[in-house]
Write a protein that binds this DNA or RNA. Structure first.
Lengths: 201, 201
DNA sequence: CTACGTACCAAACATTTGTTATGCACCTCG
DNA sequence: CGAGGTGCATAACAAATGTTTGGTACGTAG
């Protein structure tokens, strides 16, 4: 009963076009016609795969979540603080792919702050990311690289904060943040954790 | 020759309305009609003060820059690391005003990443902020609170990164980041700086 | 008091953008 | 080889939004 077999291929083309549009124009520039133009097609093609604008936005966010997942598993296992450093470096914009990913991510916050549903999704993503970072922190405590009384939750929050804050600065001034400097900053941050006092609260 | 004297007052009303709209709806929701509705007026009033949408957006960003300036001067002078901690706490969302300010700020990044002019403006603002933070870092080095070989530029970048990353997480999950926790996290970060190694680069 | 310019409203207008409808080509199945 | 459904273009439609215009009220200058 179905007609063609390259449905999945086309859908992948669509995803690529959506990705490029958002990475370059932000979510403000994400429009049916922009996506269509990006792949030299008609708006009919876009609506054929995404029945509404909301579905398009949802798909863009799913793409972002999916790509960040694959990038974060890039270095699967390293011990303790080295693992934390690797996890941070998996996110930081050290190559064009990661630059695009972070641009999409940061752009999405405009919508996510205004839309409760998207905001909640973002909150959950932060939760999962912090949980993953916390795993590395706990390993570091177990290895004696961090003081035994360290609050692993707080350290995970700090690591996530440092990472995303660095991402933002780098996105707006790529020339000032070449790969070598990013690596040095991340290394410095992780080393600094080793001597942090246990949380007095 | 001019007509009325409450021009400035009305303009202040306009600014207030623009601010509320952006804080609640983001820059995506910043529209002539939304601003007009926010102050129970007509779109004619809005266009009378802002001839175009671009002017409206520019004004919203000027407002954000202005308010962040006044808030950062809130605690004018403290010595060394204590000054750095105060400077960070001046930005973090510890009250409704600062929550609104940060929401506006984060929302603006969607537009700023897509528009080269706005992006450049954001870059310059980061530069100025980092310069101010660097002042505190240099004072801390002079007071012996940081090692003499510390790279003050890198520490300023790290402080800005930690701050904005913490802001973002707090905005999406206010319940998880009450004032006390924010203060504890900031204090922990600043204390951790004291023992960071000099940058080997 | 008249003239004129400012402040503003109300509504029309043009553009952008999301959505829907129509039609055609092609592929698969019977 | 015909029937029906998929994939997609074309284009009309509708809603939202930026922009422009005509008109009114009012205050100040002369």
């Amino acid at each position: 009963m179905p007609a063609r077999g390259d449905h999945d291929a086309r859908r992948r083309d669509l995803s690529e076009a959506v990705w490029r549009v958002v990475a370059e124009q932000g979510f403000t520039g994400l429009t049916m016609r922009a996506v269509a133009a990006e792949m030299d097609a008609s708006t009919g093609l876009v609506t054929h795969y995404f029945p509404s604008k909301a579905a398009l936005v949802r798909h863009a966010l799913e793409l972002a979540a999916e790509r960040v997942d694959t990038m974060e598993r890039h270095v699967p296992s390293a011990p303790g603080l080295a693992g934390l450093r690797a996890a941070i470096l998996d996110v930081v914009p050290v190559d064009p792919e990661r630059v695009a990913m972070n641009r999409v991510w940061v752009s999405s916050w405009d919508l996510a702050l205004a839309d409760p549903t998207l905001g909640e999704a973002q909150r959950e993503r932060y939760d999962r990311w912090r949980a993953r970072l916390r795993g590395h922190v706990e390993a570091a405590v177990a290895r004696g690289e961090l003081p035994d009384g360290a609050d692993v939750d707080d350290v995970a929050v700090s690591a996530a904060a440092f990472t995303h804050g660095l991402v933002t600065q780098a996105l707006f001034d790529p020339a000032a943040f070449p790969v070598a400097r990013l690596e040095g900053l991340v290394a410095g941050f992780v080393e600094g954790l080793g001597s942090q006092n246990p949380n007095p609260s």
